[in-house]
């Protein structure tokens, strides 16, 4: 059966400004050929030392960045053969992102943040609001809907980000250290939420974490090191 996500020979090399005296730009090879299949409904933990390229990997899978070489097939479609408009559609509805530093829009309330993907999709405002409320309720923030990000705690912000990522019921959830700077109890709560959502909604999720204990709790674990994946 066709896996949800099929990754072949994924490489990413960054070019940087040359060192003093040199003419060639410096090259940083972050990913050196990654092959990976992920089936629908899986829940993965991705670990690895800092700087090993976990965020880079998620950005490529979420089509926020283009690889130096290699392919990412999502539901049978080669992501990097899609045109700009199709990529936008993919980012909008097929995948949900939670960033390392949540990246909520500071001018908007929690509810408006969670509505944003639906609004971008041109869903009518009342319906977008209803769906966003539902998602906020799901992450336990129904009573914080009218707060702006600045008026929320770190854990609450991260949960709003989760609600926003899930707003359009994506098939794939990419969470980049959703528990990065949270206390263990709150981190446990977020991970529990992720597991629950994976179970309830059947959303495939890749969760990057530094926390070995939390990683061990997930059904499948991958480790990124030296630009390659290890079990």
């Amino acid at each position: 059966m066709e896996p949800l996500l099929r990754i072949r020979g994924l490489c990413k090399t960054y070019l940087m400004a040359p060192e003093a005296g040199a003419r060639q730009p410096r090259r940083v090879e972050v990913l050196r050929g990654i092959d990976l299949d992920i089936g629908a409904g899986e829940l993965l933990a991705l670990t690895g030392p800092s700087g090993s390229g976990k965020s880079t990997f998620l950005n490529l899978v979420g089509a926020l960045d283009a690889p130096s070489s290699g392919e990412v097939w999502f539901e049978g479609r080669d992501l990097f053969a899609l045109d700009e408009a199709a990529l936008a559609e993919f980012r909008n509805a097929a995948v949900g992102f939670i960033f390392q530093s949540h990246h909520l829009l500071p001018e908007f309330t929690a509810l408006e943040n969670a509505m944003m993907p639906a609004l971008i999709r041109r869903v009518a405002r009342p319906e977008a609001r209803r769906a966003a409320r539902e998602m906020l309720a799901l992450v336990g923030l129904a009573d914080r809907a009218e707060h702006r990000p600045g008026e929320l705690s770190g854990g609450e912000q991260q949960r709003v980000a989760l609600a926003r990522a899930l707003a359009l019921r994506p098939r794939l959830l990419l969470a980049d250290e959703p528990t990065g700077n949270l206390d263990p109890a709150t981190a446990d709560g977020i991970h529990g939420l992720l597991a629950a959502i994976n179970g309830q909604l059947g959303v495939t999720a890749i969760v990057v974490t530094h926390n070995e204990r939390l990683a061990q709790a997930l059904p499948r674990r991958l480790r990124l090191q030296g630009g390659r994946l290890g079990g």
């Binding site: 066709e2 099929r6 072949r8 020979g9 092959d35 629908a40 392919e71 097939w73 539901e75 049978g76 479609r77 080669d78 199709a86 559609e89 993919f90 909008n92 509805a93 097929a94 639906a118 999709r121 041109r122 869903v123 319906e127 977008a128 209803r130 769906a131 539902e134 707003a167 359009l168 019921r169 994506p170 098939r171 309830q200 909604l201 059947g202 959303v203």
Partner: peptide, 26 residues
Amino acid sequence: EASASGPGSPGSTSTAPPNPTPTPTS
């Protein structure tokens, strides 16, 4: 298939029609 318990789906969520037979070359 994506959301088993989605009571109200906010609009359509798919990106494009599925590609019947993908053949990754590698």
